[in-house]
């Protein structure tokens, strides 16, 4: 790698510092056709909740556009000690959660909560989409997230009101950050909302 002459030019520490870097570069990942590659939204929401708040108040996903989140997530991955995969997961969650869905044009007038809806699917949705902020016990895992178990908590509201909040986002009183529309999961539809709502009532209501 180094000729006799280069050994004279570069001190020993340079050689030792560069060798591992060159070795590591052999395993570098080829650039994808587009960037960054999509990550796992559910993992991303968990990683976002677990890591960003260790140093600072978690930012509202709607604070930045998709491209601004890219230039924010990459340097943050260096500061926070995240792998590339973890960074892509968080980025996928943030980019999915920053869309502002107008509520003025659409109003949910009535939603029927299916009494025989599969509990597991509601639980799955909660575990994948909601648990990062609301916690497995529903008491709130992040500052500002409300306590579902409180009698005066969010579950005191009607199904229609809660469905509106889930579909279009909601900011709890005292919280500086709103819940993103559909909890940041764009694939969540009204039947999924109904299922997760039934799970919330079955699991956390008094």
């Amino acid at each position: 790698m180094f000729s006799r002459q280069s050994k004279q030019i570069f001190p020993a520490w340079v050689r030792y510092a560069l060798l591992p870097a060159l070795a590591l570069s052999m395993f570098s990942v080829a650039t994808a056709a587009d960037y960054p590659q999509p990550g796992d939204l559910a993992k991303g929401s968990m990683l976002w909740a677990e890591n960003c708040g260790r140093c600072h108040q978690v930012r509202n996903p709607q604070d930045l556009r998709d491209d601004q989140w890219i230039t924010t997530a990459f340097p943050m991955s260096i500061r926070a000690g995240l792998t590339g995969g973890e960074t892509r997961d968080i980025l996928t969650f943030l980019q999915a959660s920053n869309a502002v869905i107008p509520t003025a044009a659409v109003t949910v007038t009535s939603v029927t909560v299916a009494t025989d809806a599969p509990v597991q699917s509601g639980k799955e949705i909660y575990t994948q989409t909601c648990v990062a902020c609301h916690g497995a016990d529903g008491k709130g895992a992040l500052p500002g997230a409300p306590d579902f178990a409180l009698a005066s908590g969010p579950l005191a509201k009607s199904d229609d009101a809660l469905t509106q909040s889930i579909l279009y986002g909601y900011q709890s009183p005292g919280s500086p950050m709103p819940m993103p529309a559909k909890g940041g999961n764009p694939s969540l539809d009204e039947s999924g909302v109904a299922a997760v709502l039934k799970y919330l009532r079955d699991t956390f209501s008094h």
Binding site: A21, L24, S25, F27, S28, V29, C55, F74, P75, S77, I78, R79, A80, T83, G84, G85
Partner: peptide
């Protein structure tokens, strides 16, 4: 200049916040 070598290694060249401890680099 941060060169994202792969998912596990980033090369940071230039002047950088000291990575010693947490306060300076993160807080």
């Amino acid at each position: 200049i941060d060169y994202f070598l792969n998912d596990y290694v980033t090369v940071v060249a230039g002047s950088f916040l000291s990575p010693i401890g947490q306060f300076r680099q993160n807080l």
